[in-house]
Every structure is written in C-alpha cells, then in structure tokens.
Amino acid sequence: MSAPDASPTAVAGARQPGLPDARTLHTRYLLSLGDDALIYAQRLGEWLTHAPQIEEDMALGNVGLDLLGQARSLLTRAGEVEDAHPRRDEDALAMLRYEREFRNVHLVERPRGDFGQEMARMLWFASYQYELYTALLGSADPTLAGVAQKAVKEVAYHRDHATQWVLRLGDGTPESHARVQAGLEAVHPYVQELGEDFDAARWASEQGVGVLPSSLAASVNAYVGEVLEGATLAMPDEPRWHARGGREGVHSGAMGLLLAELQHIARSHPGATW
C-alpha cells in the first residue's frame, strides 16, 4: 500500500463545487467502512467447512463474525446519519442496496483463493483495519469512536492470527512458502486501494470524523513488511496495475455473485423474520 499519486481531485478537496453535502459525505464514509467489514465477513463465511482444519473453520468464522458485528454498528450509524424517509436500517442497507451503492474496496470482494492467499489478504486487511480503528478512537462522531474502541481489540487479534499463519507458512515447507508467496502476489494489485483517499474520507478527515486512508499506508506497509521479513517472504514488486473505484461503487464481476448469495433470502422473502 503506497501513497497514491497526487491527483487533481486531491487538490480540490471537499469544497469542490458540485460535491455532495456534509450529510451525504458522512454517510458515504460510514458506508465505506461498514461495507469493507460486511463484504469481507461474507467471504470469510465461505470458508466454513472448507478450511484446512476444523480449528481454522472456527477461526475464520469468528473473524467474520467480528467483522459482521462491526458492519452492523457502522451501517446502523450510516442509516441514522443519512436520515432517509423512510430511514434505512442495517438490514435495508446490507440487503436491499444494489451493487453500485456498495463502497467497499476490491480486496474484500475478491473470490477466495487457497488458504495461503486468504492469510495474505487477511494480513493486509487486518493491518489496515488496525491502523484505521486506532486512528478513529478519537473520532468526532461518538458512535464511530465507540465502534473503534471495541473493534481495535478485535482486529488486533485478527492481525495477530494472520501474522502467525504467514510466519508459519512462509517459514514452513517449500510448498507452504511457495503458496503464501503466490497469495501475496495475487492480492498485491488490490492492496493500494486501501490507502487511497476519496471525497468522503477527505471530508471526514477535515471534520475530525474520519481519517485519510493515505495517512495509514506507511504504518500498514511497515507492519506487513516486518512480518514478511520474519516469514522469509518477499514483498511483491509494485504491480503494473491496481484495482480502483470501489469507494465510488465500481466493482468487479465477483461482487454481483457475492451479493446474490448475501441478499437472496432477504429479497425473496421481504420482511420475513424468525
């Protein structure tokens, strides 16, 4: 995750003419964080019964559950800030939005690869979330600060879990080393997007509500770099392309299938409860 190039939009900032109002930007910022957590929770849930050992079924399921909990609080807050008529609650936001309304990064929507690749993805994502929530402890949005207080402990545990596995696999057999290295190469084009600023984050940072993703990149890189070194793995070269657009609702083909699975019960049986 390296700092993005200076772009014209970065200079224009939140006072750019035609930019949405504060309520919309605040909502979008919360949705970005909540959607990252929700979509990665869904991907992690896919590992249940597919992990290399039953303890890992439990672990990936539990990490997903923590993320789902974070998503619930963040989406609930997004619905409050948005204040639509009628108001959208966590279920409406998770289950009834269309693909273009989701603001998660591409990293979390990628189909799962092998276990080595999942640990590579989790190492990057949990390291990013750890820096993010640490920075949000002092958010001017009291709900966001409260979510961060709880979540920072959870993601520290996720980051540690991924760290232990990357160390073990990287410094393990030639096969495990090769596969986790291949996993790192596979996710690398998706990492930079985590550290890219977007309009809602610029607004949130100016208001003390949120934090610029670019300000987290150096710490995230340093942590992952240290783990890779300890694991005898190589940081992949700068990729020739990288994913972009997730924060504006532009997603990959994988996203539609993911949402179909996530949403189909809620859409097939509107208002159903148990």
Binding site: T134, L167, E226, G230
Partner: peptide, 14 residues
C-alpha cells in the same frame, strides 16, 4: 489485557 486499547504490541513470535 492482551492488547491495551491502542498500540498494543503484537508479537512476531508464537
């Protein structure tokens, strides 16, 4: 506490 609220060190060793 395993991790003090923020900045708790996460060991690189098992």
């Amino acid at each position: 506490r395993a991790h003090a609220a923020a900045g708790g060190p996460v060991g690189l060793t098992l």
